[in-house]
């Protein structure tokens, strides 16, 4: 299937869509758990407040390699997934953003991705 495609005008929509898919997956799997813990269990006192203490979380997300990888997997695909939804949502709402807006949308996410890699990894 790849041949004729390689010959026809290339576009990076498949890449953006894959990142969008990865982001959707990450959000669908992880966010309900995050909402449950941060939004319900800790405020209601079912889990002790120390669960979310800076020392505890930074020890996992910033000190260990596995934790850093988790932070990357939670943050980066979700960024790409969300901006893809926003950009195509604008199209659905008949706001036809030009190339400038597209570059701005995906460009900012690229910057945030690089920043995440620089800060977390």
């Amino acid at each position: 299937m790849s041949m004729t495609q390689a010959k026809s005008a290339r576009h990076i929509e498949p890449l953006l869509w894959s990142l969008f898919g990865a982001g959707g997956m990450a959000i669908a799997f992880l966010m309900p758990a995050v909402i449950l813990i941060v939004g319900l269990l800790v405020p209601m006192g079912i889990l002790p407040a120390e669960v979310l203490s800076y020392e505890r979380l930074s020890a996992f997300f910033l000190e260990s390699w596995f934790g850093r990888l988790c932070a990357f997997v939670i943050i980066v695909p979700a960024l790409w997934g969300s901006i893809h939804r926003v950009y195509h949502g604008m199209h659905d709402l008949q706001i036809h953003a030009g190339t400038g807006i597209k570059v701005f949308c995906y460009g900012s996410v690229l910057v945030l991705t690089i920043a995440t890699v620089a800060l977390v990894l």
């Binding site: 790849s2 495609q5 894959s18």
Partner: peptide
């Protein structure tokens, strides 16, 4: 779309496949 994304990625690994 899933197939296209796969082909898109593969086309870098095997640009002259076939």
């Amino acid at each position: 779309k899933a197939q296209g994304a796969q082909d898109w990625a593969l086309s870098f690994l095997m640009p002259r496949k076939g």
